[in-house]
């Protein structure tokens, strides 16, 4: 099996993280913002798996499972809030949420 340097894995994770971050900043639809956050979290999870494989430890994968379950909890709350948001503001555009200023 060809050996892949661990840096490549981190580059991939960083690229995914940036894609997610750009999504959070650019997207205006709440659902897509939540999906972009999911990409960021999974990028961090990939980073942990890569780091774990560098040291030959299972800890990185354990952290990945933690991140996965936390992201599931977060998205469950997020989607419930999206429903309430739709009802309160009549759309999922997050720019609507700008009633408070100062």
């Amino acid at each position: 099996m060809a050996h892949v340097p661990f840096e490549y894995g981190l580059y991939l994770a960083a690229a995914l993280f940036l894609i997610g971050l750009v999504g959070v900043l650019v997207r205006r639809n709440l659902i897509f913002v939540l999906a972009s956050i999911e990409i960021m979290l999974n990028a961090a999870g990939l980073g942990f798996v890569v780091a774990g494989s560098r040291w030959g430890q299972p800890d990185g994968q354990v952290m990945f499972i933690f991140i996965l379950s936390m992201a599931a909890a977060e998205v469950a709350v997020g989607l419930a809030l999206a429903l309430l948001y739709r009802r309160a503001f009549g759309s999922l555009d997050i720019d609507e949420a700008s009633r408070m200023r100062g």
């Binding site: 913002v33 560098r54 991140i67 809030l81 309160a88 997050i94 949420a97 408070m100």
Partner: peptide
């Protein structure tokens, strides 16, 4: 609802920052 959505998006995004930082430190 507005406050909760703002908090969720920002807190989850910064949690991702924190986790990615932890992954780098662990690496």
């Amino acid at each position: 609802i507005e406050a909760a959505v703002k908090y969720l998006v920002l807190a989850a995004a910064t949690a991702a920052f924190l986790l990615f930082g932890m992954a780098l430190v662990y690496a």
